[in-house]
Design a protein around this nucleic acid. Structure first.
Length: 825
RNA sequence: GCGGAUGUGGCGGAACUGGCAGACGCGUACGGUUGAGGGCCGUAUGAUAAUUGCAUCGUGUGGGUUCGAGUCCCACCAUCCGCACCA
């Protein structure tokens, strides 16, 4: 009988669907397991990265199910986003139509791979039923003051024609299209993620089963630093300049104050002076430079004295005021106090502009000539030239100086974060409209909850140019104020798609709820996600936003957990010829093509066998053939021996021959290896190789017992367990074989096997004998042999006698069940 | 510059607690089956070669600890990834 994968896969997929095999409900008597993979953007076609991501998830889901857990394994679509809009611009297809047809295609592709999704929980973020809740949550954020609008300098992608959050600017370019990002002064909506900075940071330590790499990236992104906020009075003005410093202990060494060129006070300070023109020019020049070229470490420090002075509040000293390229308006207060003796950047700046370099910290061992520094001394030491603080250890100095400043009212201790508030407005059409109105009388008014969803209008022109596309729809923009009934205009920006994906894992627990985003009883049962799988590219973006949302919802009493994902697995990329598969490089392999040629089971098997999940996987056509060969081999093994398999129960234990015992040993060792490799180590590649070894051993057993002496019970035990263990990886063929040999029920309903420790006990084992650490012989001895017995046998062995003849035995090391090492001189 | 990861045959990768390096798969060679090809089955496959011997060398490089190191320690090299004037 031939292995007709196409027929088999069609048959089982259909059966799984009609029987609703993967539908799950809450069951208080069963322990739940929430298996989730990052849902895809419906670009139109599944790629190998998806196949890998979802194959990993499916193995875990099926494995956990067989282990008796009530497994929820949902799938949906992150279906808002720019490509749909571009399709509308380029081809005149409405984004909704384009998106829906892509979803239909990809859903079929996912089904064609035989993944065990509960399709009754399917959601699409672009459906009004879903984005109603995106908008509803926005309103809750708004009520709590977690959503606010402000005018500020924001990142603008000229190609996507929209603003971007800080997290979406990668190397100075747009996260989507890599176009260099510019700055724009705009009024935009933000989520107050900075309010949660400390908690987001603290709770990283609770995420024990997240990759260290991702945790470090998040910590760095949040960027907490401790220091002080100090006010410097501007001479001749009422205003003060606030400055953040992590080194208040060096404040007596300040010899300049440097502002970001775009600092709001600057124009006022130079107005009507000889500095006005040069400053204007300087600011203009900086504006045109990209963030990246302006702030790269290589760029030379460039500044301009603006003719004003500030007063160091600690010693009353006059300090010149500059603007300079390396000071960013984004971080701290957009001002830096220059302490050249103890900060390398300030040192370079001071050297260039001939500013005094005043040492205020000296090393404890006085190894450096502090009066002739050739670079900044940034380490700790003892305070000098610091008035009352002289002689103090600089670490203590930090606390003391802060105490002093607080007492005098000139400054205070302060924790600063690098994290900025999350900019969520987008000047695009294909996103959830922000549910806000602007009334001539009442001002800004949130849309009442009962009026949700604010539907996307269909009469919009897609030009790809100009303002938010929603502003082109008259029927959308003009509305009435719910407060006063007067005329009002709608907000025309939509929300960042990352908002939609920040709570989808909660919605999956209750996807069809029309009255609430999700029911607490359901979220309590299913949350948190036990295992999340996705690419590292979301290490900061999606994973930080989702954590933030979950915390806000927790505080609102809408989420039962503070952290959404207990364990995270970031899978590696799929490479071809050493590079990431991409259309532009022309090195793609389409999943459909592979499925057509070898079937889904082979595709899944190969992608899991090729490398451990977190590592990159090099695609290999020959490797795929190897996986296909293996499935054929197992197919033949079962179909050719199944009559024997079926005709008997397990043979009596006492009649086991050496061969029988050996096969049973291999079987139970395989069960042990596969169970721990899937369940604990996520090393699917080694789990699969263990199954391959079992198949090889079974063939070997059949070959050696051609004469009919085989133990049918043991053969049956080996083959049935083999099918069960194959089931999470290649579910169709496992199901078909299970049915073919006439086993009861479905292979997927079988309990995951337990290994029998008895079967793993060997009477005799092979040990190694070494002389001075070098292999000199092998011995088969009783597994129970003691150290002394092992030594004795080893020393009596012919080969060993030869090797040690005429030498003195210094020491003998015997490790039970492993080896004997004889040290001679 | 800082942080992280990775370096093992011709290739993808195993080796879990320091104990036979190279499991499993690919590729290759030879043999069998076949009219032939494919498929399948078997054997071999790290390098070295006047000594086919449980020989010597061998896990990026150099040192160290140990009876014993791919694994632990120190120094370095290479590649990849993330951050990058963060005050």
């Amino acid at each position: 009988m031939k292995y007709d994968f196409a027929e088999i896969e069609r048959k089982w997929q259909k059966r799984w669907e009609t029987e609703g095999v993967f539908k799950r409900e809450e069951d208080p008597n069963k322990e739940k397991y929430y298996m989730l993979e990052m849902f895809p953007y419906p670009s139109g076609n599944l790629h190998m990265g998806h196949v890998r991501n979802y194959s990993i998830g499916d193995v875990i889901a099926r494995f956990k199910t067989m282990q008796g857990y009530n497994v929820i394994h949902p799938m949906g679509w992150d279906s808002f986003g720019l490509p749909a809009e571009n399709a509308a611009i380029e081809r005149g297809i409405h984004p909704d139509k384009w998106t829906r047809s892509n979803i239909d295609t990809m859903r079929e592709q996912l089904k064609g791979l035989g993944f065990s999704y509960d399709w009754s929980r399917e959601i699409a973020t672009s459906s009004p039923e879903y984005y109603k809740w995106t908008q509803w949550l926005f309103l809750q954020f708004y009520k709590k003051g977690m959503a606010y609008k402000k005018k500020s300098s924001v990142n603008w992608c000229p190609s996507c024609e929209t603003v971007l959050a800080n997290e979406q600017v990668v190397n100075g370019g747009c996260e989507r299209c890599s176009t260099e990002v510019t700055k724009k002064e705009l009024e935009q909506w933000f989520f107050r993620i900075t309010e949660y900075a400390q908690r987001l940071l603290d709770d990283i330590d609770k995420l024990e089963d997240w990759p260290e790499k991702v945790k470090i990236m998040q910590k760095n992104w949040i960027g907490r630093s401790e220091g002080a906020m100090v006010s410097f009075q501007i001479q001749g003005f009422d205003e003060k300049i606030e400055v953040f410093t992590t080194r208040p202990d060096t404040i007596y060494g300040v010899s300049s104050m440097v502002l970001a060129p775009e600092h709001p006070l600057v124009p006022k300070l130079v107005e009507g002076t000889e500095y006005e023109e040069p400053v204007k020019e300087f600011r203009k020049r900086m504006e045109h430079l990209s963030e990246i070229s302006r702030t790269s470490t290589e760029a030379e420090k460039e500044g301009l004295f603006i003719g004003r002075y500030v007063i160091n509040p600690m010693n009353g000293k006059e300090v010149p005021l500059f603007i300079a390229n390396y000071v960013l308006m984004d971080y701290g207060t957009g001002a830096v106090m220059g302490v050249p003796a103890h900060d390398q950047r300030d040192f370079e700046f001071a050297t260039k502009y001939n500013l005094p370099i005043i040492p205020v910290i000296k090393p404890r061992d006085e190894s450096i000539d502090m009066d002739n520094l050739d670079q900044a001394f940034e380490a700790d030491g003892v305070m000098i030239n610091s008035g009352p603080f002289n002689g103090l250890d600089s670490k203590q100095g930090i606390t003391k100086v802060i105490e002093y400043m607080e007492a005098k009212g000139i400054g205070e201790g302060k924790v600063n974060f690098r994290l900025r508030d999350w900019l969520i407005s987008r000047q695009r059409y294909w996103g959830a409209p922000i549910p806000i109105l602007y009334c001539d009388k009442c001002g800004m008014v949130p849309v009442p909850e009962e009026d949700l969803p604010v539907l996307l209008p269909t009469d919009v022109k897609f030009t790809g140019k100009g303002n938010s596309p929603l502003s082109t729809s008259e029927s959308f923009v003009h509305t009435t104020c719910p407060k006063c009934g007067g005329s009002a205009k709608r907000e025309v920006d939509t929300m960042d798609t990352f908002v939609c994906s920040s709570f989808y894992f909660l919605r999956f627990t209750d996807p069809n709820n029309h009255d609430h985003p999700f029911n607490m009883d359901k979220t309590k049962y299913w949350m948190p996600v036990d295992q999340y799988v996705g690419g590292v590219e979301h290490a900061i973006l999606h994973l930080l936003y989702a954590r933030f949302f979950t915390k806000v919802l927790y505080d609102m009493g809408l989420s039962p957990v503070e952290e959404p994902f207990s364990r995270l697995l970031t899978q590696g990329m799929v490479l071809k010829d050493g590079a990431k598969m991409s259309k532009s490089k022309g090195n793609t392999v389409s999943p459909e093509e592979i499925i057509a040629k070898y079937g889904a089971d082979t595709a899944r098997l190969f992608i899991l066998f090729g490398a451990p999940p977190e590592r990159d996987l090099e695609w290999s056509d020959q490797g795929v053939e190897g996986s296909f060969r293996f499935l054929n081999r197992i197919w033949r093994l079962v179909t050719e021996s199944y009559q024997e398999v079926m005709n008997n129960d397990l043979g009596a234990e006492d009649t086991l021959s050496g061969q029988d015992k050996e096969l049973r040993y291999v079987l139970h060792n395989t069960i042990k290896r596969v169970t721990t490799d899937i369940g604990e180590r996520f090393n699917f590649n080694t789990a699969i190789s263990a199954i391959m070894e079992l198949v090889n051993a079974t063939y070997d057993y059949l070959e050696k017992n051609r004469d009919g002496n085989l133990n049918r019970g043991i053969l049956k035990e080996a083959i049935t367990n083999m099918m069960i263990m194959l089931a999470p990886f290649s579910p169709h063929i496992a199901s078909e074989l299970w049915e073919l040999v006439g086993m009861e029920g479905s292979v997927h309903d079988q309990k995951w096997p337990k290994w029998d420790p008895e079967a793993l006990i060997k009477d005799e084992i092979e040990i190694v004998v070494q002389v001075n650490g070098k292999l000199r012989g092998r011995l088969t001895i009783s597994a129970e042999a003691t150290r002394e017995e092992m030594e004795e046998i080893a020393l009596g062995h012919e080969k060993i006698k030869e090797s040690i003849a005429g030498k003195n035995i210094v020491k003998v090391i015997a490790v039970p069940k492993k080896l004997v090492n004889i040290v001679v001189k």
